[in-house]
Structures are given as structure tokens and as C-alpha cells.
Design a protein around this nucleic acid. Sequence first.
RNA 1: AGGGGUAUCGCCAAGCGGUAAGGCACCAGACUUUGACUCUGGUAUUCGUAGGUUCAAAUCCUGCUACCCCUG
Length: 349
Amino acid sequence: MSGGVDSSLTALLLKEQGFEVIGLFMRNWHEKDDGGCCTADEDFYDVRSVCNNIGIPYYSVDFADQYYDRVFKHFVDEYKKGRTPNPDVLCNKEIKFAPFVKHALSMGADYIATGHYCGVLHADDGYNYLLKAKDSNKDQTYFLNQLSSQQLDKVLFPIGGMEKSEVRALAAKYGLSTAEKKDSTGICFIGERNFRKFLSEYIPMKEGDIKTLDGKVVGRHDGVFYYTVGQRKGLGIGGGGNGEPWFVVSKDVENNVLYVSQGDQSMIYHSHLQCDGFNFITYRPKQNQFRCTARIRHRQPEQDATAILRGNGLELVFDKPQRAIAEGQYAVVYVDNVCLGGGVIERKF
RNA sequence: AGGGGUAUCGCCAAGCGGUAAGGCACCAGACUUUGACUCUGGUAUUCGUAGGUUCAAAUCCUGCUACCCCUG
């Protein structure tokens, strides 16, 4: 339980269904947020309040060390390389659906349930398939693309078939204190931050030039790793030219140069991308090429594409060029209602 | 040293005697379990400066200052 509405209602529904439910809260980060508050404390307070309300025991576990070693380190390393990692995907793979589940099972649980918006099909063929959520606006399968069928074995997603509005309405009906609580955002367990400031605590600033593709210096930056391709805000470049906004077009980590373009974004649209490795949640498809839909970022409407398996990797060819494909993010592939899995984007062209 | 031109928000830039458009940047919200994108809202009592004309000036006149161009 995270202290939000989703996991609150999840616990309640299971209790209603006759399960013996225990609330398990996880803490993975100990620093305070930008406002000087420790949101984890408030969240656990909400967990306690909800658990008391529905009459179930609650516990707290701390995986801060493992989170740091298995998620955060990689996150920082990737940024240092000029890439754009996705810590929450790793967090699910390395923490939530790993030591956390293990811990729950060791406490005697038969199943672990979370408030994710997605579904799981424990199929007769022995595989556990990850399914899209009913509420396409809240679908969280993107973040679960690195899981394995094995990891989903003892998992339930009780609200995956509900709309967010239904969840809130039910939570309110049952009088759960978290019914109106705002959805959490920002890096999972770390929270909403001034991102550049946060990163600068782990990656020192390194000033350099901001240039256009033809080499003209148009500004200065604090460090190329703080920026992502396609980014508009935070460049501090204004005026001149055609009066249109400027966007990050590429990064040269070696020479510490941030390349930008004013108005014209045609150069950041690409139809092809490559993943050197690809995680199939269940099994590798038999055919080496197939039609699918795919996402290159969370909440992106699924895009029609053709997937081509190459060695351990996967190449995607989109029907329509995609804007700002970022190395380090995940390409997640779907066929109909099933999330097949995903891989880290290594190249685009 | 002469001649011409320009000086309006951090950057572009409207305005041409009637009481400061717009864009970019920036800030704040919204959206959002990454990073981004996007959307909405906010931001010059003041127009290089000092005077003058006028009921009224950023808009006209004069001095000064700065920068740009041309001629020496």
C-alpha cells in the first residue's frame, strides 16, 4: 500500500471478497522533498488510517538500500552518459516485484496485490500475461514492461478493470480517507522535484555552449545531462529568429555541447528505433516480424508499428515518425490487449 | 573629425499625439507514478537620459549619452 486511493481501495475490495488482507507499506527513500516534508511519513499515516478503517493489520518495510543499489545508481549513471533513464520501470522490476513480493510471501502471503492500473491473466498455458487497463487514460503497463511471467505469478491487480473515477467514487462511498487524495507524481518513492536541482545533487554542473546544428552559439547550459531531447523548458533562450520556441535536438556529452533548434523540429522525428535487448514478459514470439502497437513513453497513445526481432534485440518501425525518441527510455510493445514487454531504446534513425 | 540611423520587459518586436500589441524566455497552475511534450494563467504605471511644446507624448522639438553604418 502506498497511501494513495488506488492501493487503499485495492485492499478494501480484497477484504470484501473474503481475502485475509494485510497492508504492506514500502519505504525506499529517506530524504525530504523540496518543501522540506517527508511525504513517506504522511503516506504511511494514510496507510494506517485506511487499514484501521477497513480492519486489517499493516506493516512497513524499508528497501532504501536496495533501491539505491539496484535502481538509483543506474539512474544516475545513465544520466551521466547523457541518456534519459526511467527509474520507475527499474523500480518495478528490481524492487516492487522482487524483494517486496518476496518479503510479502515470506510473511505468509499467498498473493501480492497492488493498485496498478493493468491486468494479469494467469493462463492455462502456465504463463502470466500482462494486460492493459480498462481505463486507457491510467494504464500503467508501460512501467511494468520489464517484468517476467514468473514475477507476475503471485500477483493480483484488483482495480485494473476499473475506471479511475469508479475507484474514487467507491473509495468515497466506503469512507476511505484517501478518496480525494491527489495522485502522486514524480519519481516513485522520491516524489515531485525540481528535477534539475535534484539531479545536480548527484551530477555536478558542467557549463557549456548551447549551439544550433550549424554551430552557432546561442546560449549556455549547466550540464548537458540535465536536458532531454525534445525539451523546451529551461533553455533560457528567447527572442530573435522567427520568434518560435527552442527545443533540444541532441546532446554531445563528449564535447559538452547541447544542440537546439528554433521552431523546426523535423530532425527529432524518427520512424525506426532499436533495442539491444528486449524483455518478453512471457515468451519470444515465433515469428521474427509482426505488427503491433508501441509506446516510447508513458501515456503516449499506442502507435502502429512493425516489430522485427534481431538477435536478442528488437527493432521497431513506426507507421508514423515519432517525436523525440529518447535513448534510455523504454519501447513497450503491445498486441491487442496484451503487453508483450519492452526494451531500452539504444538507437533511433 | 564630419554625415546618416537606432534607442520600448531578460531577448525579439508592434506603436507614428490620446493615455504601452504580440512572440520567445521566465514564473505559477493543470496534466502526469520517469525525463519530456502539451494546456491555462501571470509578468513594463512605463518607453536611453534631461528639458520643452500640448488639455494630452513612447509618439513633436532641443541638449546629452550609447550603439550601428557611411565618409575621412
